[in-house]
């Protein structure tokens, strides 16, 4: 066994993950190799050190009310019961051939519907971020609100991808792609900012300005992910609470839509 082969097995040897034969070969190497033996001893020492960590655990009072806090949160939502999910089974067991046939047709129809309307069109996060601005046929405020919502959604997806990126294996793809999307969003930000002129749109204007700074940093990154430059972008997102602000803006937009809908419903009722 070479030094490298032995050292590659250190973690498994330390935590008992090696097959007995492999462990024996590895230990034999350690007996004859002073360098590997010292390196392994250092790892063992680190492992022992980690055992000296003590958690700050909550007391009895916390655990006494633990279930009631969970219960209050789950009270309104029952889990989808197994009984409910098994409900269709008896239908398929009915001897009636026509009923089984009808069920099969319905199932195929539903499958086609699902494939065409749902599964086939579900965009990936990257696709969401790359979507062009929403071009609704409605004009004026509705169109602007929809474009703003679309802009914020795509920015959010992009930034979440970056913030959650880990070990150079972000789920969102390469830095190059993130830079391309950033440049696209920066371009849209100029148009949107110019259109958002009302006093009640000040907060969203400020949010877009904050986003522009972050997106500019991202668009100009020349390095690989995981390096200080991308960390700077992540810190910028944190420091300015960008994701939180986007969420607040989404809730505000939802509230506006709900109010408008309620007003429309009221008007219809009176007609």
């Amino acid at each position: 066994m070479t030094h490298e082969e032995c050292q590659d097995r250190f973690a498994e040897l330390l935590y008992g993950g090696l097959e007995p034969d492999d462990a024996a070969v590895c230990r034999e190497h350690l007996r004859g190799c002073d360098g590997c033996a010292k390196a392994f001893a250092a790892l063992e020492s680190t492992r022992s050190l980690m055992d000296r960590r003590v958690r700050d655990e909550p007391g009895e009072a916390y655990w006494a009310s633990y279930w009631s806090r969970i219960e209050s949160r789950i009270g309104s939502t029952a889990p989808k019961s197994e009984a409910a999910s098994r409900r269709p089974t008896p239908i398929f067991r009915l001897p009636s051939a026509w009923l089984a046939g009808a069920a099969a047709i319905l199932l195929v129809g539903f499958g086609i519907y699902l494939g065409r309307n749902i599964l086939g069109t579900a965009p990936s996060p990257a696709e969401v971020a790359l979507q062009p601005p929403t071009a609704l046929h409605t004009s004026g405020e509705d169109s602007l609100a929809a474009r703003t919502a679309s802009y914020l959604e795509r920015s959010k997806v992009l930034l979440q991808g970056i913030v959650n990126q880990d070990d150079l294996q972000g789920t969102f793809g390469s830095v190059e792609r993130q830079r391309r999307i950033s440049r696209q969003l920066i371009g849209e930000a100029h148009v949107l900012s110019a259109a958002l002129k009302q006093p009640d749109q000040q907060q969203v204007r400020e949010l877009i300005a904050d986003l522009q700074i972050i997106l500019l940093q991202l668009a100009n990154i020349e390095v690989e992910p995981g390096t200080p430059a991308i960390e700077l972008v992540k810190q910028g997102v944190d420091h300015k609470s960008i994701l939180l602000k986007i969420r607040v803006e989404e809730l505000r937009a939802l509230s506006r839509r709900t109010s408008t809908q309620a007003a429309a419903d009221t008007a219809r009722t009176h007609l």
Binding site: E12, K38, T46, L49
Partner: peptide
């Protein structure tokens, strides 16, 4: 396995001032 080894190596480096073992100077 790979993440476990890397984690141990980083912890060993970060906490080296707490250890007093014969492998310290080697590590």
């Amino acid at each position: 396995k790979s993440y476990l080894f890397r984690a141990l190596a980083h912890l060993q480096e970060d906490l080296s001032f707490y250890r007093n073992d014969p492998g310290m100077e080697h590590a």
